[in-house]
């Protein structure tokens, strides 16, 4: 022996190679296809807004941890992922509005990291999804800038880009007929929605790209089917029952609702955030159903065209309650109760 010491610790003495930072970086990687499609459709502006969010998130994390005299953990990738998710949830037009609104993503990142995450105790202790709180804060503070949606254009600075409503916005204000008219026909509507050639937040539009990332995460078992399936399933069923014209039940178009808005991004990448969703599978299904129901309530009856963000945040509130109520099934527990 080189030195005359051995290490003594409690079992187990071997551990898996999985680490938190590996998980964070892998989830970030899974968003790459959606990000590439966003840059393709919205041009460099998408890149700038997202990069701005990522950089300001990491810097926020660094300085707040420095100020609170905590260990600096920016390399674990969680601040990067929060920044990336926030960026993908913002409109690309933030880069090129007049007057300039590039401070908006920076403030959003600050709110996400400092207020939502670190002030609640840092990684693992936040109640709400940081990126979504960042976005809600921006929606409340700059409602106009946050809802100017450009038509997809790859122009570098698009001061003159035509603004247009999102598909859900058109659906809400003018109805399904007008939406089909805008896209030509129904088939084209679905195709464009799948590929992502439509106005909307940077990372939410390309359903195909998002599904590739989601499939990768499911394959790697970083997420499980429980939340996405129950979330999407509830949305589909409620859209079918209540999404039709007037009071006609069971005439809605579930596919339209599944493909539009931030649903896919939310269901696979935001609602499944480990920290803010229940940890027991049964609880996760309940959580997903709640998300789906609230999303459809807002989409069909609320003032906003899209409800995914609020639905997830509202269900985040219920996570501690769900975790307390719905526990894992203890081995051999049933027989004890019958005694």
């Amino acid at each position: 022996m080189k030195k005359n010491t051995v290490i003594v610790s409690v079992s187990p003495h071997i551990m898996s190679e999985e680490t938190v930072s590996h998980i964070m970086w892998t989830v970030s990687l899974s968003l790459f296809p959606a990000f590439v499609m966003a840059v393709y459709f919205f041009g460099p502006r998408a890149l700038f807004v997202t990069a701005l969010c990522i950089i300001s998130s990491i810097l926020s994390e660094y300085f707040v941890q420095k100020a609170m005299k905590k260990k600096i953990t920016i390399s674990d990738g969680s601040a990067f992922l929060t920044g990336l998710l926030l960026g993908l949830n913002l409109p690309a037009s933030l880069w090129s509005l007049n007057p300039f609104t590039i401070h908006v993503p920076i403030i959003g990142s600050f709110v996400a990291i400092v207020i939502t995450k670190q002030l609640f105790g840092g990684l693992g202790y936040n109640i709400f999804n940081p990126a979504l709180i960042g976005r809600v804060f921006l929606m409340a503070s700059w409602p106009r800038a946050m809802t100017i949606w450009n038509e997809p254009t790859a122009a570098f600075v698009a001061f003159d880009a035509k603004t247009t409503a999102t598909p859900l916005g058109i659906l809400k204000e003018e109805g399904i007929g007008r939406l089909i008219e805008v896209f030509g026909d129904k088939v084209n509507l679905y195709t464009q929605l799948l590929i992502g050639h439509r106005s909307g937040s940077i990372g939410e539009t390309s359903i195909i790209a998002l599904l590739i990332g989601a499939a990768f995460l499911l394959y790697k078992r970083y997420i499980t089917w429980h939340i996405p399936a129950s979330f999407l399933g509830t949305v589909a069923v409620l859209a079918w029952i209540f999404g039709g014209k007037g009071t006609c039940l069971f005439t809605g178009d579930p596919l339209l609702h599944l493909l539009s808005g931030g649903l896919i991004l939310g269901a696979f990448f935001m609602a499944t955030d480990y920290v803010t969703c229940p940890s027991v599978k049964t609880g996760q299904i309940l959580f997903g159903i709640g998300c789906g129901a609230l999303t459809m309530l807002i989409r069909l009856k609320g003032g906003y065209p899209e409800g995914v963000m609020f639905a997830i945040l509202l269900m985040n509130c219920f996570t501690p309650l769900i975790d307390r109520t719905i526990r894992s099934k203890v081995f051999g527990a049933i027989k004890v109760k019958t005694k």
């Binding site: 938190v20 998980i23 674990d76 693992g124 480990y274 940890s279 599978k281 894992s328 203890v330 081995f331």
Partner: peptide, 27 residues
């Protein structure tokens, strides 16, 4: 080099992996 030093452990991120693997169904 095979010993894992656990004195620098991180916070629980509530990923639920331990709940999934616990043979006794605990949390």
């Amino acid at each position: 080099d095979k010993v894992i030093h656990t004195e620098e452990f991180g916070p629980c991120i509530r990923c639920g992996r331990c709940i999934d693997v616990c043979p006794m169904g605990l949390m």
